[in-house]
């Protein structure tokens, strides 16, 4: 019963204290708002970069041409062999007649050129996609080693550059988001420390009248939670509405159709949840750390 009363009192005091020390609470809430806004925006950007690069990478493929002498049987055998290579995602067979039709439709003058040939001069082919773009080179090498293969190419240098650039961009965004979370934790913790510093008398009295450390910490932890929660409200609203509106205005892609944005539902709600979670968690931990300083026995 006593423990229940202490918890009840802690929650009541936490709310009271946020309003009683309004200017200091506001400072902490504003600090949380600004930093969490930066964090949630960076999470949105990082997730979209990650999504776009993964998507672009997944569209990279190896074009394999078979030798002229390859029969349909050879093609079937090669298809199943390539499918067994590690990291291969899909192997699509495209025979020379399909190529001819596609190229003629794309450019009529090419169609005229093909008319001059008695036999189709093109080669049967496979379009091979891989699960991990970093394995493109490796898989290509293995395909080249097979019999009845005329050539296997994936764009080599240009693609290698794209992949390594994407890798750097992905890693950099993750590092930036983590760094921002740390900065946020540091700033929120320090503003909460200021709030608690102004109430060290309160803590000292609680200690001397015989409150247990847990009973002293509780109201401050709840207060930190409230500050973090209130601080995350504006970032959450901006993230949800901002992203949905932005997505609709940009028609779901940015710069070109190739760079697609992540569909807002449920993505924004996940980001909002993480922002609220981060805010309240940092608020609680910040308060806890700050109170502990005044809790020498």
């Amino acid at each position: 019963m006593k423990a229940f009363r202490i918890i009840q009192r802690s929650i009541r005091d936490a709310f009271k204290s946020v309003f009683r020390n309004f200017s200091l609470s506001m400072a902490s809430i504003l600090c949380a708002t600004i930093t969490l806004l930066v964090v949630s925006l960076s999470m949105v950007i990082a997730a979209n970069i990650e999504n776009a690069t993964t998507k672009l990478e997944s569209e990279l493929s190896i074009v394999v041409y078979l030798e002229k002498s390859a029969t349909e049987e050879d093609a079937n055998f090669l298809k199943s062999t390539i499918e067994k290579i590690e990291s291969v995602d899909e192997v699509v067979y495209k025979n020379k007649d399909e190529w001819k039709l596609e190229m003629s439709e794309y450019n009529s003058s090419l169609g005229n050129v093909f008319e001059n040939y008695e036999n189709n001069p093109l080669l049967d082919s496979f379009v091979v996609t891989v699960k991990d773009a970093n394995k493109l080179e490796n898989v290509t090498e293995k395909i080249r080693e097979l019999d009845k293969i005329e050539s296997a190419n994936y764009g080599e240098d240009a693609v290698n550059t794209i992949i390594s650039t994407f890798d750097i961009v992905e890693k950099a965004t993750i590092v930036i988001v983590i760094a921002l979370i740390f900065v946020t934790a540091f700033l929120i913790t320090n503003t909460i420390k200021l709030t608690i510093y102004s109430r060290r008398n309160e803590i000292e009295i609680m200690r001397l009248v015989g409150s247990s450390n847990t009973a002293i910490k509780l109201p401050f932890v709840f207060e930190g939670f409230i500050i973090g929660l209130l601080g995350s409200l504006i970032p959450v609203i901006i993230t949800i509405y901002g992203y949905i509106i932005g997505y609709e205005r940009l028609n779901g892609h940015i710069i070109s159709e190739m760079i697609k944005l992540i569909s807002p539902y449920n993505f924004v709600f996940y980001v909002a949840l993480v922002t609220v979670g981060l805010g309240s968690l940092i608020g609680m931990l910040g308060s806890l750390l700050a109170v502990r300083k005044y809790l020498k026995i």
């Binding site: 309160e202 009295i205 009973a215």
Partner: peptide
């Protein structure tokens, strides 16, 4: 003194008991 400036005389004294979870 170490009184809490935003609490009344009654509340300052009661604070000592509230901290202990007394009803």
């Amino acid at each position: 003194f170490k009184l809490l400036p935003k609490l009344t005389v009654y509340e300052n004294v009661a604070f000592a008991l509230e901290c202990l979870g007394i009803s």
